[in-house]
Design a protein around this nucleic acid. Structure first.
Length: 262
RNA sequence: GGAGAGUUGGCUGAGCGGUCAAAAGCAGCAGACUGUAAAUCUGCCGGGCCACGCCCUACGGAGGUUCGAAUCCUCCACUCUCCA
């Protein structure tokens, strides 16, 4: 989210002061209507990190982290025209089931792993098949060549986390998330990707008069909590994570871990 | 004071004699994650078991009708709307 120019409040970008103090990279690098994905991020991040002595990655988009640390298999990229065709089929009555049957036929392994309702994954798997003639599951991830890194996971008691999350959403709306969204909607199509994300999806509904701000805040809080939970799930299965309690001592504890591993 | 509507699992809310431990959504918990990833999706979700079957407790309370009730009847309690 923070790669998108103009999507500042809802993506909780660090302030200009913070960014002046510590050089930040790969923030504000694309507009909302430009195509950008995890593979792009992984490539760019590797380039940037090669120039930096001690790069620190901060964030919770762990798929992007993986794309950076481990890289994604060398398979075909995104084909917008093709995706459009697949999506058209998906919109027909029994579309999703048909697409999934097709997938199961050309790639039984993916058919088993991906459920028909998971439209993004069904779409991508078919896209890879159509453009390359190879099932997506035949591309093995590069074996164990993860970039060396010290992984520090912040940990917080659930109740305190929820309180902090709620306050964060409240603050975003107070700081003008709806106005920011209105201005962005004037520049980009409503279908642009970032308008579908937590915070912006609801703020956009407010701008369009489809949702009361109170309800939008509630919905954004809900989705934020669910997102935090997904991040925890991901982090729990991530290997070699060193856990640090969030709060006052966190920074010092993290530094200690980094020095020990230097 | 009169007329009507309602009381369902943590919440919202279906059900209107059996197939109901009770739809659906939310919340909660767990999980997945190969180019949309702050996206997309999955499972569990009253309790207890020697668990693909059984037991217990459940649909405001107490009785009743029935082979059988969340569903019908009676009374009670509470809530809401309208008329006074």
């Amino acid at each position: 989210m923070q790669i998108y120019r103009g999507f500042d409040i809802g993506s909780a970008k660090p302030s200009p002061e913070e960014r002046a103090r510590v050089p930040h990279h790969l923030f504000d690098i694309v507009d909302a209507d430009e195509e950008f994905n995890a593979a792009d991020y992984g490539r760019l991040a590797r380039e940037v990190c090669a120039r930096i002595r001690k790069p620190i990655l901060a964030g919770g988009t762990f798929f992007y982290l993986r794309a950076f640390l481990s890289g994604l298999p060398e398979m075909p990229g995104r084909d917008e025209a093709l995706r459009e065709r697949i999506r058209r089929i998906a919109k027909t009555p029994r579309g999703p089931a048909r697409l999934h049957r097709w997938l199961s036929k050309i790639d039984p392994r993916s058919g088993r792993k991906i459920v028909p309702a998971d439209r993004h994954r069904v779409e991508r798997a078919l896209e890879v098949w159509i453009t390359s003639g190879r099932p997506i599951s035949s591309w093995e991830p590069e074996a164990e060549n993860e970039l060396p890194a010290v992984k520090i996971g912040l940990r917080m008691e659930r109740a305190a986390l929820v309180t902090a999350l709620d306050a964060r959403v409240e603050r975003m709306y107070r700081e003008g998330l709806v106005d920011e969204t209105r201005a962005l909607l004037a520049r980009f199509e409503m279908t642009a990707r970032p308008f579908g994300t937590i915070g912006y999806r609801e703020a956009a509904a407010v701008v369009r008069g489809e949702m009361a701000e109170r309800d939008a805040i509630e919905e954004t809080r809900r989705r934020t909590r669910a997102y935090a939970k997904r991040q925890m799930t991901w982090l729990r299965s991530e290997r070699n994570v060193q856990w640090v309690d969030a709060g006052n001592g966190a920074f010092a504890a993290a530094l200690r871990i980094i020095e020990e591993n230097a």
